[in-house]
Each structure stands twice: as C-alpha cells, then as structure tokens.
Simulated scan of single mutants.
Amino acid sequence: MNKFNLLLVFVLSFLIFSCGSNNGKKKSDFSIQIPNNKSEFSINEELQASVVNSKNRSIDSVSFYFGDQYLKSSKDGTNLQLDLKDVLLGNQTLKAIVYSEDKTDTLTKNIKVLNSEPPVVYTYQIINSYPHDMTSYTQGLEFHDGILYESAGQYGKSKLRKLELESGEVLQEIELDDQYFAEGLTILDNKIYQLTWQEGEGLIYDLESFEKTGSFGYNQSKEGWGLCNNGQKIFKSDGTEKIWILDPETLAEKSFIQPTHHKSISTKLNELEWVNGKIYANTYQKDGVAIINPENGAIEGIINFSGLRDKVTQHDKLDVLNGIAYNSETDKLYVTGKNWDKIFEVKIVKK
C-alpha cells in the first residue's frame, strides 16, 4: 500500500469515528441559561436556571448537579430553582446532564457564591506574654494536653519542637533534613502531622517518642501551608483559595472549602487553628486572622492584630504574624510570629 492510500485510509477512519461519537467537542444543541446571565450570587439568594433546547430535540430527562452534589432529575424537566443557603461558597459549577435521542450532553456554568453578611470585625487585648525563641521562624503552633508544639521553617533550619509555654524551654526537638522547609502542624490520635512547603510531602511523628514514623503526599495541591483538625478531620491550606479536607486515614485531599466573605474569595490563608467549632486562619503577610465556618467556607469574622508586632524586640530578621494556638483546656488563645521573642495570650474583643 502506497503512502497516498495509507493517508486516505487514515482520513476516512478519522471521519467515521468523529461522525459516530459525541465526545463533547461538538457544539451542543443545549445550553444552561440563567436570568440576566448572572454569575455572582449571595448565599441568601435563589439560583434559577433552565436548559435551552435550541433545536427542539426530544428530551428524555435532565439531571442537575451543583459541584459534585446531585440536585434532581426529571423527565422533560429543564428548570431549576436552588436555594443557596446550604451550598458551599466560592467558585462553583452548575452542571446539567441532558439525555436526548440516545445521546448525552453535559452542560456547565461557572458561578460565584458569596456570603450575605460582611465579617464581624474584632480587635484584641493582651492578657499575658511569654518568652519565645527569636530564631524560630514559626510556621505552626498547637497545644496538646497543655503542652505547646511548634513547627519552625526555612531550609537548613526547620524543626519540630515541644515547648513549655511559661519558660519557653525546648523540651524536645527534631531537626529536619536540609531539603525540607517546614510549615504547619497538627496533632490527632497520638500522631503529629507536619507539612513541608514545596516538597509535596507531609511528615508523620509518634507523639510520645517524637520519632518520625511515616509521610504522606499532597495529591492535588502543590504546596503545604497550614494544618488543623477538629478531632475527626484534618484541614490543610496551600496558599490558594482552597482549604482542603483530608481523609484522616490516608491523608488524601478529599474535598475543600473556599474561605469567602461578602465581596470576594480569600487566598494566602496560612497557619490554621481549630477554635470552638471554627477555623482561625491568618493571612500571609497580613495582620488579620479570619474566622471561618468549616461547613461552607463563610468568613464570619476578622481579628485585626495590627500593632502586635511592635510589642516584640525589633531586629533585622523580624517577620510577620504567624502562629495561632488555642488551649481548649483553659479556653485561652495565643499568637506569635516569625522570629518574634514573645508569645502573647490574647482576648478577642468585638470592635
């Protein structure tokens, strides 16, 4: 067979395959229509949408989804009314699967869901202060059974530490290999979980022996920033608009929330702490700590810690606020920063 015949066979095969398939590249006869082409909604609104049938094809049924959540299916039902009060906030996808004449069309529409109320603004009062190692580039801070645990970062200087709050004494310490830049930490089921920044790997330690027992990968996210847990689930920030919810057994990133207030979706949320049913998260290089509803991602409050950095020893390596620790046994909240020589016990006050 000569080259021309081979080419002809290839072209004919391609045309036959293309005509017989509905692989999604062909423009659909259906589309999702939202009144006024609206794409941004408040959580207290209702989303109305319909499937437009431009060629009047016979429709067997339509199934609607919001993100991965199945909503409804109906025969010849092309209209949707969705109360947004119980959905996840942030960037979401409305999907409709149309079954028509032995073909399936998958339609999508991108929308943004914002919180309906602005965050409550809080300030702080300093109740007490305690010594903190000025050389510690704090990335994660957490209490467990009254003992303070800290993850300190930077290449060649990263550590995992067990501390006594009152004296600042280091009770135990592990130095990480130079290849790691340590980030956030959390403690669950007698295990310490510590993130690394861009190495795509989290480290696991035995709480009692302080020995490394394993590691885990990052699946979908590229970086590790902050960690916290609610006693069952582990939450992980990665610098994007997502806070991932990890499977506590496999540490796989199963789902996520998007911290969102009444105007936009937040990014660069760093150190995380679980406080009385909410996630506290500081924004990298900012003095604010967001109070986040873990159910839908709503930012319900902002704590303004402006001025706190001025109350520590000023030096050339002094860096930003980072480090939130809540002692559930005493109901006390503590904050510090990178290369700060103090840890502050603070009381949060509505402004």
Rank of each mutant, 00 (worst) to 15 (best):
E345T: 00
L188V: 00
K342S: 09
K26C: 05
E201A: 12
T283Y: 11
N91S: 04
D341W: 11
N128V: 08
V113A: 04
G288A: 11
C228R: 08
N270I: 03
L12A: 06
F235R: 13
T313D: 02
Y149D: 00
I127S: 11
Q194I: 02
L8I: 06
G288Q: 11
K254Y: 02
V52P: 01
Q179N: 08
E150S: 01
E183K: 03
K55V: 15
L171Q: 07
N53K: 08
G226R: 10
N115L: 01
N23R: 02
Q220T: 15
T260V: 04
G224W: 04
D310Y: 01
S39A: 15
K25F: 06
F216M: 10
L15Y: 11
P248G: 14
S58P: 03
D177K: 07
S61C: 11
T336P: 04
M134I: 15
K268P: 00
E169Y: 06
N91E: 05
E249L: 04
L148A: 10
N276T: 00
R309A: 02
K85W: 08
L94Q: 02
E45N: 09
L246E: 10
D60V: 14
D316M: 00
L160I: 13
L163R: 05
N322Y: 14
K254C: 07
G202L: 01
G224H: 02
H315E: 09
N37F: 10
Y99F: 04
E45L: 03
L227T: 07
L272R: 07
Q48G: 14
N79R: 10
